[in-house]
């Protein structure tokens, strides 16, 4: 499976949500789509899924345009927040009935299993479900659709921690049993970072980073030591954040963290620690005036 996003531009009135964004996604993997609020993540997912036609640019899947192309859109699933593939006045079992009709690869058994795990009753009216249960319904519909590309946009925000961990387990189970591509958009970065193979970061509608998670993490380090030594060490390096307590200072450095870098820091008596995905993301995307 190959998704090609070409020069997508999305404008809402005077606001530019996506600015000439291009991106290519290949193979089967779990991808994290990260970005601050209003960065354009949801807009991008809406466009990939064909929920919205972009102002300009196009999305191709295996060389074919996505928008209003039934052969392609049936291979895509986007579940947004608490899910909009259901009608509030229906019962859960009715939502499954419609999904079974509309989704070509629908796995009813899997859907019922997931709903049972998340303790969502088939007889419940959807409007009466709590936010968490409704999120679980969205997840069940998304995973049971067995689409080649499944996108979950903050779908699991309503879930409590045990339910989220259950979701992660089921997602990985799905991925192992039937390898396909997942895109997860979430603010709970630390929770999902451990199983992300690729990371896409969008900031102010532009692509900031796209690559392997290890590659991303390897580009950031926190250098800690005497403030003067740290200041001297980071000259000429890209510093994305700083913290100081007394005479001890930490500088977050982004760039090539190689053997020479580590040896030099050791020689200068500085400690080097790698930054997690969330720390790197925060430092990279924080506004300049923060």
């Amino acid at each position: 499976m190959n998704i090609e996003i070409r020069n997508i531009h999305q404008r809402f009135g005077d606001t530019i949500a996506l600015n000439d964004l291009s991106l290519s996604i290949e193979g089967t993997k779990i991808i994290g789509l990260l970005g601050r609020n209003g960065s354009g993540k949801s807009t991008l997912l809406n466009i990939i899924a064909g929920f919205r036609k972009p102002t300009s640019g196009k999305v191709l899947m295996d060389g074919e345009p996505v928008f209003e192309n039934g052969r392609i859109t049936e291979r895509l699933a986007l579940i947004r927040e608490v899910g909009d593939t259901v009608e509030d006045s229906e019962k859960v079992e009715e939502a499954l009935r419609y999904a079974a009709y509309l989704r070509p690869n629908w796995n009813d058994e899997r859907a019922r299993y997931l709903l049972d795990r998340f303790e969502v009753s088939l007889k419940s009216k959807i409007s009466s479900l709590s936010r968490g249960r409704r999120s679980a319904l969205g997840i069940a519909l998304g995973l049971a659709a067995q689409a080649d590309l499944t996108m979950l946009d903050e779908t699991y925000l309503g879930l409590d921690a045990p339910s989220r961990y259950l979701f992660y387990d089921e997602l990985l189970q799905d991925y192992m049993n039937q390898p396909r591509t997942f895109i997860l958009s979430s603010h709970l970065i630390e929770e999902i970072a451990r199983f992300l193979e690729d990371i896409v970061i969008i900031d102010h509608g532009k692509l900031m980073f796209h690559g392997n998670t290890e590659q991303f993490v390897s580009q950031g380090a926190a250098v800690t030591g005497n403030a003067a030594d740290v200041d001297r060490f980071v000259v000429g390096k890209k510093v994305i954040g700083e913290r100081q307590l007394g005479r001890t200072k930490s500088a977050m450095v982004y760039g090539e963290i190689n053997i020479g870098f580590l040896e030099q820091a050791s020689t200068d008596g500085l400690d080097v620690e790698s930054l997690g995905v969330q720390d790197l993301f925060v430092y990279l995307t924080q506004p300049k005036d923060e």
């Binding site: 064909g50 039934g70 895509l76 699933a77 986007l78 909009d84 999904a99 070509p104 659709a145």
Partner: peptide, 9 residues
């Protein structure tokens, strides 16, 4: 809209 959300055109 539900049809579109389920991958139909």
């Amino acid at each position: 809209p539900i049809y579109v959300a389920h991958g139909r055109t």
